[in-house]
């Protein structure tokens, strides 16, 4: 079982590497966001797997919080880039 967990963790690491490569390469800003978003969700899974790998049940809370933060971060960065201002109101019309 430990071996299977290790293999899955390595697979997730590979995916994170690929996502990071996409984020670094670009070419547009939105490719970076797609890469970072995939990287973030994989981090959540990685932490959940490490919880079982090490047996520290408390780590699952970290994964839970990370899932929340990742979503907020992606939406906040998108909004910041689009409107250059986090305090601006919602989308008006088609911009």
């Amino acid at each position: 079982m430990t071996f299977v967990l290790l293999v899955t963790i390595l697979a997730i690491f590979t995916t994170m590497g690929l996502a990071l490569w996409r984020a670094i390469q670009g070419p547009s800003f939105y490719d970076t966001i797609v890469g970072v978003n995939a990287f973030g969700t994989k981090t959540v899974l990685l932490i959940a797997l490490i919880t079982y790998f090490t047996g520290h049940a408390d780590l699952i809370d970290v994964a839970l919080v990370y899932a929340l933060i990742n979503f907020l971060a992606v939406v906040a960065v998108l909004k910041l880039v689009r409107q250059r201002d986090l305090a601006a109101g919602g989308e008006k019309g088609d911009g």
Binding site: A11, I12, T14, G17, L18, A19
Partner: peptide, 13 residues
């Protein structure tokens, strides 16, 4: 799950 994650990563590239 690991396999599909890697496939998705390949697609990403």
């Amino acid at each position: 799950g690991g396999l599909f994650a890697v496939i998705g990563g390949i697609g990403l590239l």
